[in-house]
């Protein structure tokens, strides 16, 4: 009996401390976001640094997201074609792939890959700068490290995400055409016409809007984990891992909400 009470107390304590950590993290991320919004509009603007991050983060992510997009498009077409064929609806394959990619797959796949590639990198880089006092060195020089390190990275991620997603969408559609061309004699022209006719404004806008929000999440979470890192090299590793886990979870969670909003607005 006494043991049961002790176990129940321990479980309650564990749950409460988990909740406390959750709210602490949510609060810290909110403050970080507000600080970002308060800093991004005011000078000095570090355009050179944003450009450097765009070059670096874009070139680092492009091969991986490009190959993944192409292969996912190919697999999607290979998997769906037999089923559509059974119902005599294989002519709808280009439209189905296009809508899937533009509305959902492209933005989410790109965001999850970039979260793994970029958010962890930002977390590790800023975490390492934190534990080796490089951020303090910036601060004591009278330079705002938040502006130089965080704002520039988040802005670069926001700009980068739609561009990478557009490339993934394009390569995904190309991959799906390759799968279709292997199995049938559909021409590229016919495939492309079917794709463009199926896409509407209601498909494009949410797809693009999503990528901007995902870019913000990737940059912000990675920067937050790195900027707040403590505890030496262990802390850097933790910052990097948590950045990936947290940004991926947030992307999926926010996507769920955005899908609901999109369906509510456009049906």
């Amino acid at each position: 009996m006494a043991n049961d009470t002790h176990a129940a107390k321990a479980t309650t304590f564990g749950f409460l401390s988990l909740m406390a950590r959750f709210f602490e993290l949510a609060g810290s991320l909110t403050i970080f976001s507000v600080r970002f919004l308060g800093s991004v509009l005011f000078p000095p603007y570090e355009f050179g640094e944003v450009k450097r991050h765009l070059d670096e983060l874009g070139s680092r992510s492009l091969p991986l997201v490009g190959v993944t997009g192409f292969i996912v498009g190919l697999i999607l077409a290979m998997q769906t074609r037999p089923t559509l064929f059974r119902f005599g609806a294989d002519a709808y394959l280009p439209a189905m792939v296009a809508i899937s990619f533009v509305r959902e797959l492209g933005p989410v796949i790109t965001a999850l890959i970039v979260a793994g590639r970029v958010s962890s990198g930002i977390g590790a880089e800023l975490g390492s700068m934190r534990v080796t006092e490089q951020i303090d060195a910036m601060e004591v020089s009278g330079i705002d490290p938040f502006k130089f390190l965080v704002v520039t990275r988040v802005v670069a991620c926001i700009i980068l995400q739609p561009l990478l997603t557009a490339i993934v969408d394009g390569l995904g559609l190309l991959g799906s055409y390759v799968a279709v061309a292997i199995e049938s004699d559909m021409s590229w022209q016919l495939y492309w016409n079917s794709v463009t006719q199926s896409l509407t404004f209601a498909d494009l806008v949410p797809g693009i809007a999503k990528t901007l929000i995902f870019g913000f999440i990737i940059g912000l979470v990675g920067s937050h984990q790195g900027y707040k890192a403590t505890g030496g090299t262990v802390g850097v590793g933790r910052a990097s891992t948590t950045a990936v886990v947290l940004s991926s979870l947030l992307i999926i969670f926010v996507d769920m909400i955005l899908v609901k909003i999109t369906v509510w607005i456009w049906g």
Binding site: S128, M129, T132, E133, Q134, D136, A137, M138
Partner: peptide, 8 residues
């Protein structure tokens, strides 16, 4: 700084 804290 103790470790110089150069921007690496």
């Amino acid at each position: 700084f103790q470790g110089a804290a150069l921007y690496d």
